[in-house]
Design a binder for these strands. Structure first.
Length: 125
RNA sequence: GCAGGCAGGCGGAUGAUCGCCCGUCUCAAGCGGGAGGAAAGUCCGGGCUCCACAGGGCAAGGCGGUUCGUAACACGAACCGGGGGAAACCCCAGGGAAAGUGCCACAGAAAACAGACCGCCCCGCCAAAUGCGGGGUAAGGGUGAAAAGGUGAGGUAAGAGCUCACCAGCUGCAGGGGUGACUCUGCAGGCUUGGUAAACCCCGCCUGGAGCAAGACCGAAUAGGGAGACGUUUGAAGGCGGCCCGUCUGAGUCUCCGGGUAGGUUGCUUGAGGUGCCGGGUGACCGGCAUCCCAGAUGAAUGAUCAUCCUUCCGGUUUGCGGAAGACAGAACCCGGCUUACAGCCUGCCUUCAAGG
RNA sequence: UGGGGCGUCGUCAAGCGGUAAGACACGGGUCUUUGGAACCCGCAUUCGCAGGUUCGAAUCCUGCCGCCCCAG
């Protein structure tokens, strides 16, 4: 079995404001108790991650923790999630009180739902 | 021991696995480093950078006991003065109200060039009392946050700093102490001049403006500016081609310069630096020597998971065990302060009370 | 980073040193067979919070807290 590396290079992150607005405009949304996920197909051989946490969420410590948890969720489960998808995490307040196994469960369920949706689109074409 | 005051410190620990950012010439590996006492609020003061600037004044804003400390401060230290507390100790924007102007509600006679409601006293009118009129007075009354020195004696028609003694306070002078704020003692004076300047104001002192998104450098694509060269029946340039010839298209093409957007680089971390020892100073702090290099991100790193231990709580209670929680809070150019938030714990000194020796 | 503004009853608000207006809403009452309307009465001892100045502070000063808006 090939040894997999759980790294997160710079090009797996979404940086540009334009990309964010595009995903928000054209992407689909999935709501979970801990966070909302906005996602859209990209034409790349890998998936990318973006995180958006507003000022209302809390102070800097709480915002940072939310971002780091989301990033770890994506990084550690990147081979179990569909490829070629841009996804933006919108954390909710409950994320900070959630337990790690529950979060993993949620992200895997999200991955399955995403995988089913684009296939329908491909078949329709 | 209880209660309290002051000063200072810590801010969970260790390991494993998977990651992130920076440095080590580049990539990988390896190695080294990777949030705080407040990093916070952005309330002051500086450094640094750019712009402006002969000198002086005004305006505006800030500060306000004194002397030190400091790069500087609105900060700190010591002291002085005032206030609070039984004490340790704490608090104070703490210059000027005998330069001027304003304000002081209600109550009260009167709230500030002093004044007269009730009183008290004298005189006149009336036979007398009451009453009325004229005058003197500021002791007593009541109002108020605040009422024109206090007490006693003399004095008087009644009284009054009108006079005297003592006390409080003011001004001036002299002397002693202190660098000084100030304080102590003595003498003289007028007898006493309300509060408010975080009301206007006066006096003294301070302040040029912006901010690292400062500033510097590199710089696409597209559009456009300036200069020059070669060209438009004597054909520049481009296509075909390794190149020349040739042939086709054909009116612009090429070079240089300057500005400059996206973006990138730099500023960017060695500094009024930390730690230890010694010395000076009551202290803030300063000096010397040794030693250390300790985050530099930029759509923004410093994390996650799992163990073991520590602290606290709950169930349980002999131990064990099971479960939960671990404050406030995240660097953004860098320092010095101030202010605010903070679970729990530790250390030293001091005060009061209680008990014992 | 720099600058500006606002917090007063449940809501909208006036007041800017001397007892905190008013409107709507709400509660009670009068009137009416009942409801509405009208009228009367009631409704802010934390004026965002904490200190200070003053005899006295919503108002003046200082420090916090929250919200909103600009500029680059």
């Amino acid at each position: 079995m090939e040894k997999r590396r759980f790294t997160l290079p710079e090009n797996r992150k979404i940086h540009r404001q334009q990309t964010y607005s595009e995903i928000f405009r054209k992407g689909k949304r999935l709501k979970f108790p801990e966070f909302t996920l906005v996602f859209k197909d990209n034409d790349l051989p890998y998936s990318r991650i973006g995180i958006s946490v507003g000022k209302k969420f809390g102070n800097a410590v709480q915002r940072n923790r939310a971002k780091r948890l989301c990033r770890e969720l994506f990084r550690l489960n990147q081979y179990l999630l569909p490829t070629g998808v841009d996804m933006i995490f919108l954390p909710r307040k409950r994320l900070l009180d959630a337990k790690w196994p529950a979060l993993v469960k949620t992200i895997l369920r999200a991955g399955k739902e995403i995988e089913h949706l684009p296939r329908k689109k491909i078949q329709a074409r």
